[in-house]
Design a protein around this nucleic acid. Structure first.
Lengths: 213, 213
DNA sequence: TATCGTGCTTTACGCTGTAAGAGTCTCGTC
DNA sequence: GACGAGACTCTTACAGCGTAAAGCACGATA
């Protein structure tokens, strides 16, 4: 699967293609994942991939599905502990593959790995006192929080100084007085947005108790 | 701004371009928004747009920023009521422009409208007992929930029957027993995922009280 | 009237996904 | 061993993409 050297005939496998496609997207974003670039990386012409996937959409479907394989399943008796671990893992996986969350929006047919993952979580919750609808709600609300938080993290500039400059770049009264104050009080006091994930997660987990039984 | 008829020289404005670009993306998704298609809709060659926006990225930046104009700002004394109204509006706007949430991921420099919106919300929260960090947390957690929920809504198939078929399409024991049970108990009893938004939102708003003062 | 800048068009380049067809290699069967 | 059938890959081609560069036409200014 390494770059450049041509493969033996038949050495192109679905697994291998998915691995290289993931690596390609991880490195250069979704835009870098073209069929030709993927072929190049596999030591093959781009069109060769079409013998293993009907079209690019099918490849992307499989890619998204595969991401769920990396997410930890909830474990242990205490559902708060189990769900927290799963959510933490989910966030890390989505940060590792930033292209995945952008793809979710456009694909409406969950793959087998995704279904198996969700099936497991639902079963886990049902065994711990969450009734039918309650289990679905807990899964949906936690996922919503994780997806949304990661989305904000990805949109966060790696270097905040230009934004800070924009907020403060003015003469006379600031156009964004409250953001200005927030920067002074919080951001400049060593605030790390990533730390807030656990805070919000614990608040949400506490709230989920109301959906039990 | 209507389709087809050529414009007078100079009739192409930033506002007009943004309006048509939004309509184009609303209708056919982000993929339908090409510079040539946009020009066609404006009665102009695609390249003409480049006299008003440096490149497509700049256009997309402005599009995302403009979306924030449609979101209601929080109002009233009761912060729970004010925030709930804002979140409900935010969700509706994101559903109206499904392409917007996919764009957020890739743009790290918030525009002036976005900044003004956030500034207002932070000010609103500060005036109602949320200290520096607390106000930032409330905004982040609520947005995370709304973004993530809408993301799931957009990924939801408009017609769930094919997914139901996949879950149940088996001989012998179901590969997804808990999802199968969930469908029986909940989905087939007239479950509407959209209704869950308010449930989760109220739980989260209750939890936000802990960040006050 | 001559000049200039603005706003739009034209042309061109390298990229994209993928349809169609032409090889070529590997098998199972006789 | 010969042969037919598939499976697999490559080649070619097409329409569309973002956008650099240059050209053209008009209104305002000198």
């Amino acid at each position: 699967m390494s770059q450049g050297q041509p493969l033996q005939r038949g050495a192109l496998t679905v697994q291998g293609i998915l691995e290289e496609a993931t690596a390609l997207a991880d490195d250069g974003g979704l835009a870098a994942l073209s069929m030709r670039a993927l072929g190049r990386r596999l030591g093959v012409e781009g069109m060769a991939v079409y013998h293993h996937f009907a079209n690019k959409e099918a490849l992307l479907d499989a890619l998204v599905d595969r991401v769920f394989n990396e997410m930890a399943l909830p474990e242990g008796e205490d559902w708060r502990v189990g769900l927290r671990a799963r959510s933490v893992s989910e966030r890390l996986v989505l940060r590792r593959h930033p292209w995945a969350i952008g793809l979710v929006e456009s694909r409406t047919a969950p793959g087998p790995i995704t279904l198996a993952h969700q099936d497991h979580v639902i079963g886990y919750l049902r065994a711990r006192g969450f009734a039918g609808r309650g289990s679905a709600q807990v899964l949906a609300f936690l996922d919503a929080y994780v997806y949304g938080f990661v989305l904000q993290e990805l949109a966060l500039p790696t270097d905040p100084t230009p934004v800070v400059d924009v907020v403060r770049e003015h003469e006379g009264p600031s156009p964004y007085p409250h953001l200005d104050a927030l920067i002074t009080e919080v951001v400049e006091a060593g605030y790390d947005f990533a730390d807030e994930f656990d805070v919000g997660l614990d608040l949400l987990l506490d709230a989920m108790g109301a959906l039990r039984g």
